[in-house]
Nucleic acid binder design. Structure first.
Lengths: 141, 141
DNA sequence: CGTTGCCTTGACGTCGGCGTCAAGGATTAC
DNA sequence: GTAATCCTTGACGCCGACGTCAAGGCAACG
């Protein structure tokens, strides 16, 4: 089984993984330092990755683009590492989804509230300041 | 005029200003270091503030609560310092309001887009995972 | 005279997700 | 052999708005 899986594995080094994942080597080392992306090592000490690692990095990047913190991506990565078909094939990942949805809802509500208040302030202040953006308006009585 | 205005001025030190504005001395010194809140000095070197300063701090705090950056509060503070009745009695302040509204609109749209995508992911992933939160549902065929 | 409670300046720490530089080893191409 | 391009670790920088600690001055009370 182990030998069979290795047959189709093209190992790569950190630079290639970074390029294929659309990120930087610095970022991948950072993920490793956080325990998200442990790397095997070649005899010369170089980090060695395979296609599975690429999937994990892409999963992390997708979630990061959604505004997930790194820690929030951990369940997804561990889910993939456990051999599941997708990062969100595990209950822990779904829990993160749900928590993020609630967080987003709260945040969006707050921002809309702020937007409304700022809008009111603007209208009120504009009413005080007679210098509008349309000088020829209401000219002739 | 100068002597007349001083008649009603109760000077205070940084601790009292902080307490009355609902913030900390550290924050007020930080504002001063940013040039937002210059302070007069008593003979012993203590910072001295008046009611006008209190208004400025409250203006800053209000905007900060709305998510404005410190630099964005500067026009409001300068407007107050110029003697205007309110921090948003000046065109520069209104410009900040408008820019913030546009910024908020963009941000809210982005967050709603993310929310929608995350929601879709959750639904899709839940459909794959048969273990729903309602185990006795659809039990007997 | 000492203690308490204000005040002063200065400077380092925090959080997240890396960027960027430094100094050096490995591999490949020529 | 050497130049170019990878790779390694380590460590400091960044952004924003302060928190927190250190060391010491000033004022008032008893």
């Amino acid at each position: 089984m182990t030998s069979a899986s290795r047959i189709t594995v093209f190992d790569m080094r950190i630079g290639e993984l970074a390029e294929r994942a659309g990120t930087t080597t610095r970022t991948l080392r950072y993920y490793e330092s956080r325990g998200l992306l442990p790397a095997r090592r070649a005899v010369n000490g170089y980090r060695t990755y395979d296609e599975g690692d690429l999937r994990m990095v892409r999963q992390i990047r997708t979630l990061q683009d959604f505004g997930f913190g790194l820690e929030e991506t951990r369940p997804f990565v561990e889910c993939l590492r456990a051999g599941h078909p997708a990062g969100d094939s595990c209950p822990a990942s779904l829990a993160v989804y749900r928590a993020k949805l609630a967080e987003l809802d709260t945040l969006i509500d707050q921002l809309r509230s702020v937007r409304a208040q700022v809008g009111e302030q603007l209208l009120r202040a504009e009413a005080q300041l007679p210098e509008g953006p349309d000088p020829q308006c209401e000219f002739g009585g």
